[in-house]
């Protein structure tokens, strides 16, 4: 049942992403992307990462995408005439490069066909819960939390600087 759900979600994600990147209208592209992220969030949930799934919905699909939407509307990029349609000539190198990357990645995956042994002494598999996540986060990566929070602070400062109203 979960297996089937996963494949369905994967297909939905991929299709939504393809639609998002081929869409000329930026607002529509954002909507497709939100769809894609929702599907991905469910995949995360299936992979025993409920917290990440929630963050994906709240931050990505919620905050970030809404931010994009705001900017698009604010800059009046909403009409497709202004967003110039990329030419096929421009698409060609992109497709070639992306194709090579994909092929190489798949090749690497198939080359490593033997399943990787679990790290950490082969104890029996158990599902992670939020408590495990929290303990790892705050005990093992305490410094990383601090650094990330500093980074957010810097981002706030930078945004305030960029966005301040200048005298003409």
């Amino acid at each position: 049942m979960e297996q089937t759900l996963f494949y369905i979600l994967a297909i939905v994600t991929v299709i939504a992403t393809i639609l998002a990147i081929t869409e000329k209208h930026p607002v529509h592209a954002i909507i497709y992307l939100v769809t894609s992220f929702f599907a991905l969030a469910v995949v995360f949930y299936l992979l025993a990462a409920p917290l990440i799934a929630v963050f994906e919905v709240i931050i990505y699909a919620g905050a970030v995408m809404v931010l994009f939407m705001f900017v698009i509307m604010m800059l009046d990029q909403g009409n497709p005439e202004e967003a110039r349609c990329p030419l096929l000539v421009h698409c060609l190198p992109a497709l070639v490069l992306a194709g090579i990357i994909l092929a190489a990645l798949l090749l690497l995956l198939s080359g490593r066909s033997t399943p990787v042994a679990p790290i950490g002494g082969g104890s029996e598999k158990r599902l992670l819960d939020v408590a495990d996540f929290a303990i790892t986060l705050f005990k093992k990566y305490g410094v990383a939390i601090e650094i990330i929070s500093m980074q957010l602070l810097f981002a706030i400062v930078g945004v305030l600087y960029l966005g301040r109203r200048r005298k003409p």
């Binding site: 190198p93 490069l97 090579i100 090749l107 690497l108």
Partner: peptide, 19 residues
């Protein structure tokens, strides 16, 4: 474009090694 091309080259080289 150059960045992606370079990255492609690297990944392609890794794949070539496996091959």
């Amino acid at each position: 474009l150059s960045l992606v091309a370079g990255a492609t080259l690297m990944i392609g080289w890794f794949a070539w090694e496996v091959l």
